[in-house]
């Protein structure tokens, strides 16, 4: 464990909690892409199947359980409890355009052609593009609630910190996973435009509205 991975995980946890609290407190999922949240639930489900087969550390197990529970709770709030506030007209990204290439890539490019390894690879590739429906929805509505931008900031920050974690691990531990690094780079690059708007607008107290 290193400081980049720990702060990255905590940033990820913060994002997940911020979103869950936003929906719960405002009793509304306006502006939130349910499709992205379903994809995140799928990412955690396919990546954390090893919860039952291998124990790495208490931290690892506890965080995985929290992520999975929060992901499904968020999906439930969006499509169940507060579905009346779900803005389906703007959450129209065709997720099959993400799932099909990700499945193909996971089958073709992986570390080992074994079920758990392919599921892990699928989850890594899917996570790198899972935010697209959310970013697409914001571009369609032309704006985002400030709390939603904080959610996106911490979500984008987490994988950015993981990039530094991988540099650290390569340098100090000789650990290197090309699949995770390339997918993590793609994931972080997708946030660049948002990061720019967040820093130049939201942090200056303005509302995030598009076109910039």
């Amino acid at each position: 464990m290193n400081i980049f991975r720990l702060t990255g995980d905590l940033s990820h946890l913060a994002a997940i909690i911020i979103l869950l609290l936003k929906i719960w407190k405002t009793r509304s999922c306006a502006g939130i892409s349910g499709k992205s949240q379903i994809l995140f639930a799928l990412v955690f489900t396919t990546r954390y199947l090893d919860l039952f087969s291998s124990f790495i550390s208490l931290y690892n197990t506890v965080m995985k359980v929290i992520y999975i529970m929060c992901a499904y709770a968020t999906v439930y709030l969006i499509y169940g409890k507060f579905k009346a506030t779900y803005d389906g007209n703007h959450d129209t990204f065709r997720v099959e355009f993400l799932l099909i290439p990700v499945v193909l890539l996971a089958v073709l490019i992986n570390h080992a052609f074994a079920p758990m390894e392919i599921l892990w690879t699928f989850s890594i590739y899917l996570e790198s593009v899972a935010i697209l429906p959310q970013l697409f929805m914001i571009s369609k509505t032309g704006e985002a609630e400030t709390i939603t931008t904080h959610y996106l900031f911490f979500l984008g920050l987490y994988r950015t910190l993981y990039l530094f974690n991988w540099i650290w691990r390569f340098y100090f531990e000789g650990f290197f996973d090309l699949i995770a690094v390339v997918a993590g780079l793609v994931q972080t690059i997708l946030y660049c435009d948002f990061f720019y708007l967040y820093i130049t607008k939201v942090l200056k107290g303005k509302k995030l509205s598009l076109p910039a």
Partner: peptide
């Protein structure tokens, strides 16, 4: 493919 890299990351 390469041997399985340890999956200790979240």
């Amino acid at each position: 493919g390469d041997d399985d890299v340890p999956k200790d990351e979240l």
